[in-house]
Amino acid sequence: MSTTTTTTTTTSYAALLRGINVSGHKRVPMAELRDLLTALGHGAVRTYLQSGNAVFTSASTDEQGLATALEGAIEERFGFTVDCLVRDAAYLRAVADACPFPADRLEGRQLHCTFFSAPVAPERLASLDPAAYLPEEFRLGDRALYLYAPDGLGRSKLAEALARPALFRGTTATSRNWNTVRKLVELTSG
């Protein structure tokens, strides 16, 4: 008698929730977020910080489908909408590796990455004069924007200019400092 073993391959993902737990608005406790992800059938669920970062494994390869399911579960459980992006471990590693700034020589608060739901055409940023914001700088990557703000995000004039809704209309965007990017790479890598 022969037995057949079926192996399900899983992928490690990070879920990036936009705009939760800020000044008491859209409160999503991390324990409940972990419960939601587990109830959706995901494994190895962990959260990082209170700002909406979760790591999990799934047999699905559909990042958008995973994000949509999580958005629906959050709305059903908490009664408000939260935009979610889901990115796999390989993508997060590629974003970290492609950083155009010397991340290993900068403090995590000086470097940020904004993740987008879709590619952003460089023409959208043509109205910004990079020289007007020096020493702050930005570079566009694959569904990501890297921001170097030597005095931190809170004092960044460039971050303020990049936050104008018209620049990225129709695209979900959420930012993380470089310490968080590094940690998400580590957590999704195994």
Rank of each mutant, 00 (worst) to 15 (best):
P119V: 05
P29N: 04
F115S: 11
L33F: 08
S23R: 15
E75C: 09
V181F: 00
A121E: 13
R143N: 09
G52Y: 01
A15P: 13
R155M: 03
L128W: 10
D129L: 04
R27M: 15
V120L: 15
G141W: 11
L66I: 11
R18S: 05
E137H: 10
F56C: 02
A54R: 06
N177G: 13
S189Q: 14
T81G: 11
S189R: 15
A103T: 02
D88Y: 03
F56Y: 12
S58T: 07
R105D: 15
T47V: 03
D151C: 04
K157F: 05
L147F: 08
L128M: 06
L37Y: 05
D104C: 01
D97S: 12
D104W: 00
V45W: 05
F116L: 14
L162S: 13
Y13A: 08
V28R: 00
E107K: 11
K183E: 08
Y148Q: 12
A132K: 13
E160Y: 09
A159W: 08
S189T: 04
L17G: 12
G141C: 07
G79T: 10
T172D: 00
E32W: 00
V95C: 11
T10A: 09
K183G: 06
E136C: 04
T81M: 12
E76W: 04
P29F: 02
T61L: 02
S127K: 04
A54F: 02
G65M: 03
L16V: 09
V55A: 08
D151M: 04
W178H: 11
A159L: 07
R155T: 01
A31Y: 12
L92D: 01
K183Y: 00
L128E: 07
N21A: 10
T171I: 15
A173V: 15
Y148K: 06
E32D: 13
T68L: 07
D62H: 09
N53P: 01
V22N: 10
V185L: 00
G170I: 08
S127I: 02
V95I: 10
A121T: 05
R93Q: 14
R176H: 08
S2T: 15
R109C: 00
D35K: 15
T174E: 11
I74T: 07
L17R: 09
A163M: 10
R93P: 06
R176V: 06
T180S: 11
A39G: 09
